[in-house]
Amino acid sequence: MPEARVIPIDGRESVPPRRSRRSARCTANASDGKRCREAVVADGLCDEHLAERLEAEAAAVAPEWERRLAGGLAFLRRRITGDYPVDDFGFDPELTESVFLASVRPLYEKYFRVEARGLDNIPAEGGALVVANHSGTVPLDAVMTQIAIHDHHPAHRHLRMLGADLVFRSPLIAPIARKTGGTLACNEDAERLLSSGELAGVWPEGFKGIGKPFSERYKLQRFGRGGFVSAAIRSGVPIVPCSIVGAEEIYPIIGNVKILARLFGFPYVPVTPTFPLLGPLGLLPLPSKWIIEFGEPIATNELDPAAADDPMLVFNLTDQVREVIQQSLYKLLLARRSVFF
């Protein structure tokens, strides 16, 4: 049966509206695909289509900076009024992402040109413990590892770093460490982080590693007392060994002023080829090329949590992790063409 034809009362359907010949036709296409037949107002477009285009422009072009302005202003307001969340450890994700990581990122990308490998060895969710070698006089390697994981891991996870108590005793450094996700390297904190599904990072060589002379570069020091292994076993999370190449060369330590170190209670006062010889210029790290490689995770969930109290097992596992990192360091060094490229 044919459909009923609707005839509008004013009869416009059958008689198209007449327009003055001089007025141009709109260049846009109407919604039905046919050429729009309305008169041009500006830019070769009719009233309706001009408004449409302006709206599209408004949504696409101008608001880009306006959105950023709005975001920036809101960020400033939140910071000024203290309206941002921090977790129990004092971690401030907003500050970390918007200020801290953003300001160190050029160092990662342009200066050290860090290459992160094996990021898929880090689980996308759940607790895991990244264990890495420590070097470079200043713990830049920890910060670079944090950026590597945050920027290049598909889940963009935050690495919660476990630091020595000297970090939390030092003015200026202590609050930065806490706000960027650090906490004291003790079993209680490690277990609390790991069992709440966080990704924690530990540098078990501590000051022995970071402050060792240049002649001992890439030789792993003793791995503490293996506390990190027992924390991982108790929380049943995997250990991800991580080897960092390049950090050893940023500030080569050729001497240590022990008297000054003892006087100020520092673990070491380094002498490098440029510091203190060149004064403040000597604080500039050498632009070595870095590689951060994450190795295969070592599972601990098959072990009984009581195994954490078995010193022999803990020592063996600690040695195993240390050996894995040392071997992968040697492999990376063999493959490296030059320190700086």
Binding site: R79, G82, P171, P175
Partner: peptide
């Protein structure tokens, strides 16, 4: 939860002055 001291001072609409130890 916790508050950072600086954050608490900001929430109270106050400014803080840092005094060297």
């Amino acid at each position: 939860g916790v508050l950072l001291l600086s954050q608490a001072i900001r929430r109270a609409g106050r400014t803080s002055v840092q005094i060297p130890s």
